[in-house]
Design a protein around this nucleic acid. Structure first.
Length: 190
DNA sequence: GAGCCGATATTCT
DNA sequence: GAATATCGGCTCC
């Protein structure tokens, strides 16, 4: 499984669509089927790793699979899955998912019943992911787990929310409609 | 639906 | 001091 993440970020990104991201907090399980991702590499001027390792992005240079969680706009948390060999700062940002397990808990954490996981900051809030999960291994026993799913059809788009390298088409959105992580589907977002 | 704006941690100038 | 891998509430179609 981990070997599938050792490839370059733009190659790994679409593979993550359809995978399950699951958290267990105080015995409460919540999960989403990943439906939107974005790739970032060290050579990419829009990437946090572009300027080399810093205190904040250190985990982005860890081994493939490592979780890189950072604070965005001082308010939200965003989660990435590190790709490539250790020492290389590339990762895939998990932008959105479809609520799977523990929907009620997500509603409680989000304080609303709609738009639960259709954005990177919303996704982490719904799943209870935050700074203390930075650097964790989601394939080891722990609060955050990454579970492979069935490959899903995706459409490629340019990235959003950034000002540099905007035209690089490194954003993937799952296409279809979800019934289970084992079937095929997709978009509850734009 | 689109567009504006404020909240605010971390990094860089 | 400015920019940022965002969100939610607001206005105005």
């Amino acid at each position: 499984v981990r070997a599938a993440l050792r490839a370059p970020a733009p190659e790994v990104a679409p593979r993550l669509l359809g995978w399950l991201l699951r958290t267990t907090m105080d015995g409460t399980v919540t999960s989403v089927v990943i439906s939107e991702v974005e790739a970032y590499t060290e050579a990419d001027p829009a990437s946090h790793s572009a300027g080399g390792p810093t205190v904040r992005n250190a985990s982005m240079f860890g081994p493939a699979g490592t979780l890189y969680v950072y604070r965005s706009y001082g308010i939200h948390w965003c989660v990435n899955v590190v790709t490539g060999p250790a020492g290389e700062g590339s990762a895939v940002l998990l932008r959105a998912g479809v609520p799977w397990e523990g929907r009620e808990e997500m509603v409680r954490r989000r304080g609303r019943v709609d738009h639960l996981t259709d954005g990177p900051g919303k996704l982490t809030q719904a799943l209870g992911i935050h700074g203390s999960h930075d650097g964790l291994d989601p394939f080891d026993v722990g609060p955050v787990q990454l579970i492979p799913g069935r490959p899903m059809p995706a459409r490629t788009t340019s990235r959003i929310g950034i000002s540099k390298a905007r035209d690089t088409p490194w954003r993937w959105v799952a296409v279809g409609s979800v019934t289970s992580p084992e079937s095929s589907w997709s978009t509850d977002d734009t």
